[in-house]
Design a binder for these strands. Structure first.
Lengths: 209, 209, 209, 209
DNA sequence: AATGAATGAGCTTTCATTCAT
DNA sequence: TATGAATGAAAGCTCATTCAT
């Protein structure tokens, strides 16, 4: 009975692959035409499959979109966690590694940002989206605040409030994304990274530069 | 006698006022139901007028939305410029006044932010939106960079790059807006303001705190 | 009480002039955009007047169109009857004068024909149009048959049936109009006139040529 | 078993058949209500199918109408060419066979004529219609002129111009159609046919009668 | 599992008509 | 008389969803 769920057979794997194919197509469509103008027909076409395919695998458009956002969040999460794992154990290095990741071309490319902003545009309206976004913000805020906390403790930076600094850091990267979305031509990754570095070194002069 | 003023529905308000009424209704609708789910019927209903009214005054839905974004941008611009005019003439005070304004409840309320993000969600897709947004970003970036420049010169803060700092500041407020949109409950204006202040005082210790 | 109707005062005259102005505008619009695409707004615009003007003078669009067709028919009738009056008293001359008139540039110009065909296109559907068109056809058929009759009698053309010839003649001009409508470029008035002449001289060799 | 054939509604008729079904429905609707008053809803209803069906198969109303006219033209063309093939090889017989065909009940019935005139009514306005109509006129004119040419040569009818005669003949049938449309009650096929015959025998006495 | 024809609700848009001014 | 803002019904069109194959 539970076999299916326990060890996915060939069948289930194929199914999973098809779903992923459709989610990829959805992301492509949203980045090309926007969330509002993306139809299930577009998605099916992009995937090279037929009209009815999305409802077959996702039951409804709403569900497809929610799953797409979920996938986007997971994908980001993997990058985030991997960055954390791969970076040296000291909090200062980890923190700057995370900031650097957020500005990496792979993350910060207009096509992908377009999709994030498309979903954020509906966050106020669609509770499912809000939940997903709020959860990840919470998670990353906690992690970053923890690192900042450690740095403050290490460096004896009295008078610095961990939450305040963490908020500022998260905000900076989010804000950079908006710049990158709106002005992809003039947006400059180096300047962005400098801005982050300048903040860090202003805050924690003993740790950065 | 005052009847006319009482019921703004039905009959010939000056053309300009009717347009504004419809733009207001549009903003309300977008903040309530999202851009994608706002129909012309909703807007007309919100304004207490009839189906055809929007096309009568704006010719098309696309145009209504563009005009709405334009209005939003103008409204913000007025706040921005007024803040600039009313603040003391020294650059440090002006800069902090602008930052403070960006976090003011009137600007930073979830309902209004929802509308901004709704439009940003389509920026990649709708050239008109991009143009409007890019122009204002440009303008504010220039002004803020100018102020930062002045502060650097005044304080002899060698090694500080005006553009870098200005980018960081703009990004922080934009990023705060995202937090406020996603987590209106836990978002705390004071913490946000502290984050900005902490950055400023770390950067320009002689000018702030 | 009946004064108004008996001798139209200044008021009534002005009214009449306005109606004519609107009918003229209607004809222009139909020839430019077609019957189906002509709106009351177009007509009012063409006349340089305001939206509601047509309903003020004609009560409804249907009525305006019917009156327009009526006017067109009257205008044609005047030409027809004048041609008849001005031509020499012998039936052969009168007949050829009528045929010539039907091919006159003023009658047979694509712009005017477009309007006629537009109405004919609805004849099957709109009883009012049918009535107007049927009545005039009847009238002209009768007159032409009469002339043909006279010619037959005069020339002793035995075996010629007046109705048959009259039908053929009416049909030829109507058919020429279709050619002129469809192929205004290649349509040639002279050839058309030759075709009519050739028919007449074949039928009544003693009278024509 | 025969169920499929019985109810042509609902399910997947071959795509081509469905298109034809809709074109047939369109013709029926136009002849009943006129081109201007025929809605896609009417057409779908007439075909016993649902609202969206027409746009599914024709993409737009304009396209449906153009295809309908195209079909009408093809249908006529088949009759024309078949008549030509089936008639004896001498030009005189072929010519009269073509004229006779044009007055056949199947061609010359008010319902079908209503549709032709509906399209002619828009010829001036819709380039697509003009093109289709102009092309067929051209083709038939050429064929008829060819036949007339042959007859003139055969009979040594000096002084007869083929184009002139051909124009007259084409015009007569077109004009007869207008009579038939406007006065279906009093229109008499025999008289019409007589008119054509009388012209032919007057022109080419050795060949006709 | 996949297709794609068909559905039908819902949208934007147009426009004849109304009516306060 | 004339205006033109407003109405609201009706149209064309889109598209998520269904379902026979």
């Amino acid at each position: 009975m539970m076999v299916e769920a326990e060890k996915p057979g060939r069948r289930a794997l194929a199914k999973q692959r098809r779903r992923q194919q459709l989610i990829d197509a959805t992301i492509k469509c949203i980045s090309k035409k926007g969330l509002g103008s993306t139809t299930l027909g577009d998605v099916a076409g992009e995937a090279g499959l037929s009209q009815g395919i999305v409802n077959l695998h996702f039951n409804s458009k709403d569900n497809l979109l929610a799953e797409t956002l979920r996938y986007l969040a997971e994908e980001y999460d993997e990058q985030f966690m991997q960055t954390l794992e791969k970076s040296p154990p000291n909090p200062a290095a980890r923190l700057s590694a995370l900031m650097e990741m957020a500005l990496k071309p792979a993350v910060c490319e207009p096509r992908k940002l377009a999709v994030w902003f498309a979903f954020w545009g509906e966050v106020k309206t669609v509770p499912t989206y809000r939940k997903i976004c709020a959860d990840r913000e919470q998670k990353y805020d906690d992690i970053i605040r923890g690192l900042v906390q450690d740095i403050i403790r290490e460096g004896g930076y009295d008078g610095r409030d961990a939450k305040t600094v963490a908020d500022a850091l998260s905000s900076i990267t989010d804000g950079m994304w908006l710049s990158c979305l709106i002005n992809p031509k003039t947006f400059d990754r180096t300047t962005a990274w400098n801005a982050v570095r300048s903040y860090l070194s202003a805050m924690f002069p003993d740790h950065y530069l």
